[in-house]
């Protein structure tokens, strides 16, 4: 397991909203230790028995908080992430989709300078199977096991986790890093953590077209990784210049092409799965 476990104390920002309230219920049902919520102007209320505060600072005065998950609308989301970082929350998970990119450029820089780890935005969050879920994924498809997952996609991650679980391999921690061009944490930031984690025996990297995060991850793997890694890249048939759902999934000129990503992984000795079933097959082979 990396980053989070059953003892992680979680704050929910935007807890009184539709999404925030719904997923607070889901996370509580999974066993996540949610200690407080924040919605400016709604301090003093309760959501599913969780006390609501007006600011992150007010919440952290009353509770110890290890991580915050953010369901605040796009126009205020980067500000919410900065609020959590400035209040000293060490791990911030930004779920919100559609945040203006320039807001993220400024926020990511400042949050990094504060020494806080930001995951997202536009991400499904993270889950340590059987321990805690700080995200919006369907918890039941993640069975505790041997494989770590890092992914730019949501649904595809659930597919991969379900397939690994069905095959008896299971997952340790799964991190959805998000589909936006500017995100807080990339593949290469998380690979070292999985490399150190005694429980994780192999890592699945689910990438997609756009940017060069996969290439950077491949370079890191080649130089440092001591565990088997299996890669998957979606959008391999996508046309150039078209944004495929995710703001970050766009091929610009020669940057972000699937060919470049495939080549980088091949050079790092990382096998590439063409289908979800092949992910399981390749991980199975690596761990046999």
């Amino acid at each position: 397991m990396i980053l989070v476990d059953r003892n992680t104390r979680v704050l929910v920002q935007g807890i009184t909203g539709r999404e925030g309230s719904f997923h607070t219920r889901q996370m509580l049902d999974y066993g996540t230790r949610i200690v407080a919520g924040v919605t400016p102007g709604k301090g003093g209320q309760e959501v599913h028995g969780v006390p609501v505060y007006d600011s992150v600072k007010e919440a952290t005065k009353a509770h110890e908080v290890d991580a915050s998950i953010i369901f605040v609308p796009a126009f205020a989301a980067a500000d919410a992430a900065l609020e959590a970082a400035h209040a000293g929350v060490p791990l911030v998970v930004l779920i919100t989709e559609g945040i203006p990119t320039l807001d993220m450029v400024a926020a990511v820089k400042e949050i990094k300078e504060l020494g806080v780890r930001l995951i997202g935005g536009n991400c499904p969050g993270l889950i340590s199977a059987g321990e805690t879920k700080i995200g919006i994924m369907p918890g039941h498809v993640f069975k505790r096991g041997r494989v770590g997952i890092i992914s730019r996609s949501g649904t595809l991650t659930y597919e991969a986790a379900a397939a690994l679980s069905d095959a008896g391999l299971g997952t340790t921690t799964t991190v959805g890093i998000g589909g936006d061009p500017i995100i807080g944490t990339t593949f290469k930031d998380l690979l070292p953590l999985f490399n150190q984690d005694p429980e994780t025996e192999a890592v699945v990297v689910i990438g997609e077209i756009g940017g060069s995060d996969e290439e950077e991850a491949a370079a890191w793997i080649k130089a440092h990784m001591q565990k088997p890694v299996v890669a998957f890249i979606s959008g391999r048939s996508a046309p150039k210049g078209k944004r495929m759902g995710h703001a970050g999934a766009i091929i610009m000129g020669d940057v972000g092409t699937p060919e470049s990503k495939v080549r980088a992984f091949q050079e790092a000795g990382v096998p590439i799965a063409d289908t979800i079933d092949e992910i399981v097959e390749l991980v199975g082979k690596a761990l046999a």
Binding site: G154, S234, R243
Partner: peptide, 28 residues
């Protein structure tokens, strides 16, 4: 999130990653 492409098979799914993967499979 809809992008018009130049083929003849309509594709619908939930999640950008899954839909991209589905396009890849159809092509494959």
């Amino acid at each position: 999130a809809y992008v018009k492409l130049d083929g003849n098979i309509g594709v619908l799914g939930n999640g950008a990653g899954l839909v991209m993967y589905t396009l890849d499979l159809v092509n494959r």
